[in-house]
């Protein structure tokens, strides 16, 4: 009995924020002490009326997609250069942890002077460059887990069979690393999609992603619109999670 109650408490704890976001996004006139105000879908309509939220969603999607594709590509190129045909020293890879460990907002705050001088402060390109400081080392670290001893030896085997470096990359490395490429695309997308601190500091409020919008709507006490933004924020991760879950389930069945 106690165990069941504990389980329900934990499940309620993890579900509460989602329930809160969904409830608030469809509620109007949420005055104390009414638990739920009048139900309406009005707040979602702003997405089709050229409201700031629609714009923020598109900006977030554009930034996250760009970061995802660019970081995966650059990370893969760097990874091939570091690992192809040899074992890279772990010390070199260890460097990749440092930009990732420092809080993005602190990194952004320390670098804002340089962005100002370079004319990148408050611009989309500035935000993209700043986010790449985190996503590219992350991509390199992620790809480093691909380069097992087996992959390095398979590449060597292909070379002795006459394959040039470009053929080895095309025929062996690329097909074998598809899972890592997918994972890297997803993870870099999510890092960028969920990012707030660095975007706010380097974007200076001019680059309005969904996370920036949530904070600004919350501070303006536009609770329902902020809740709509929260629900929108949850969509891509949910979609990715569902795809991932299905993939794992189907593999488990095989």
């Amino acid at each position: 009995m106690v165990s069941r109650i504990a389980t329900y408490i934990v499940l309620t704890f993890v579900s509460l924020p989602l329930l809160a976001a969904v409830c608030l996004s469809v509620t109007d006139s949420w005055f104390f002490p009414s638990f739920i105000g009048s139900i309406t879908l009005e707040h979602y309509k702003v997405l089709w009326s050229g409201h700031e939220l629609a714009h923020s969603t598109l900006v977030s999607l554009a930034i996250a997609s760009t970061m995802s594709i660019a970081s995966t590509f650059i990370g893969a190129v760097i990874s091939v250069a570091l690992h192809y045909g040899r074992h890279t020293t772990p010390r070199l890879l260890a460097l990749g942890y440092f930009p990732y460990a420092i809080a993005p907002v602190v990194l952004g705050s320390m670098l804002q002077y340089y962005f100002l001088r370079l004319g990148l402060f408050g611009s989309l390109s500035g935000v993209l460059i700043a986010q790449s400081f985190i996503t590219i080392p992350f991509a390199v670290l992620l790809f480093s887990t691909f380069w097992s001893d087996n992959v390095i030896r398979l590449s060597a085997q292909a070379r002795t069979l006459g394959a040039s470096t470009s053929i080895v990359i095309k025929d062996i490395i690329f097909p074998m690393s598809k899972r890592w490429i997918y994972l890297c695309l997803v993870q870099c997308f999510l890092i960028s999609w969920l990012e707030y601190g660095l975007t706010r500091v380097i974007g200076a409020g001019e680059v309005r992603t969904l996370t920036v919008s949530i904070m600004s709507l919350a501070s303006q006490a536009s609770i329902s619109e902020a809740a709509v933004a929260c629900c929108l924020m949850l969509l891509p991760p949910s979609l990715i999670f569902m795809i991932q879950y299905r993939m794992v389930s189907s593999q488990a069945h095989l």
């Binding site: 608030l24 929260c230 924020m233």
Partner: peptide, 17 residues
């Protein structure tokens, strides 16, 4: 479920709770 949440989203929701 919490894995779907950005820190900013979670913070906003918990504030409302």
């Amino acid at each position: 479920l919490p894995l779907l949440f950005a820190p900013v989203t979670a913070a906003f929701c918990w504030y409302q709770i």
